[in-house]
Computed example of a mutant assay.
Amino acid sequence: MVDRTGGEPQIDGRSTRWDEHKAQRRVELVDAAVALIEEEGTAFRVQRLAERVGLPRSVLYRHFKDRATLDELIRRRVVESFMRRMEPTLSFEGTVEESVQRVVGAHLDWVVEHPRLYAYMGVGEHAMGDGSLVADAKSAIALMLADRFGDILRALGLREAPIRSVAVGIVGFVDTAVNQWVHDPGREQSEEELRAMLCRSVWAVLDATLRDLGVELSPQQKVSELEGI
């Protein structure tokens, strides 16, 4: 509605309420799509979603620009779920070993609980490449790890260290190993064996990095007891 007295244009409250309703409906439809993928797999069809929510396909599409937009919103919701699981584990509480086990375990546990969503995160062009949601999520986790590693190094009196590259390498290694394991029909390791191998490998990288910097740190060292942490 236009204010004809010369003031600022007025916003129609009915329009705002309708926009909020459409946004909430879009959230509900994305949630329904995520649940459908959990149940039926990555071969996601819009017609199945329409049937699930009781809408004609043409009506459902009014909430999204196109199929690519719907796919992007679904992946974004899945990535948000993954990040919610990971972020609390990056606080580094307890011993160094327990911290490693917690971060690696959170990644593996989420994948085991949501294998179809994990597969959907990497479907098609979004599997790899700069700018993809999956690449952004990995980068975010690596940067958070690097910040915490940096805190530990500073507490040990080390101001400069190539810890960001190490964090990126660790995240890439864990994700690649888990991805290979979850898609391998003839798994050579059980879930617990994979978990133990990943934790040993991550600690080995951290230990080697610290030793190169002249520091020997026990995996049983409590992070909170390091000066400045």
Results as ranks from 00 to 15, higher is better:
36 L>H: 12
140 A>M: 11
71 D>P: 07
199 C>P: 00
215 V>M: 01
34 V>R: 07
17 R>T: 04
127 A>I: 01
1 M>N: 11
143 L>Y: 11
77 R>V: 06
204 A>L: 04
54 G>H: 11
36 L>R: 14
98 E>V: 06
207 D>N: 08
98 E>Q: 14
151 D>I: 10
206 L>H: 03
108 L>E: 00
39 E>P: 00
138 K>Y: 14
51 E>M: 09
43 A>R: 15
187 R>I: 02
218 S>L: 07
129 G>E: 00
40 E>D: 09
82 F>N: 01
122 G>P: 02
120 Y>P: 00
59 V>R: 14
55 L>D: 04
111 V>K: 11
20 E>T: 11
111 V>N: 02
77 R>Q: 13
108 L>A: 00
16 T>E: 13
4 R>A: 13
43 A>P: 04
94 G>H: 13
181 W>A: 00
122 G>N: 01
206 L>A: 04
211 R>K: 13
83 M>E: 09
229 I>P: 04
87 E>W: 13
60 L>M: 09
195 R>P: 01
173 F>E: 01
10 Q>E: 15
201 S>K: 13
20 E>R: 15
160 E>V: 14
166 V>E: 07
115 P>W: 03
163 I>R: 15
54 G>V: 14
224 S>W: 08
221 Q>L: 09
215 V>S: 00
58 S>L: 13
33 A>I: 10
20 E>I: 14
97 E>M: 15
59 V>P: 02
46 V>Y: 08
20 E>C: 09
116 R>N: 11
110 W>N: 00
181 W>I: 00
197 M>N: 03
13 G>W: 13
135 A>E: 08
166 V>H: 08
127 A>P: 05
146 A>K: 00
8 E>I: 15
202 V>C: 04
112 V>S: 08
14 R>L: 15
204 A>P: 03
16 T>S: 07
107 H>F: 15
60 L>S: 03
10 Q>T: 15
153 L>E: 01
42 T>V: 14
212 D>G: 15
174 V>G: 02
88 P>A: 12
12 D>H: 13
3 D>V: 13
51 E>Y: 06
48 R>A: 15
200 R>L: 08
4 R>P: 09
35 A>D: 06
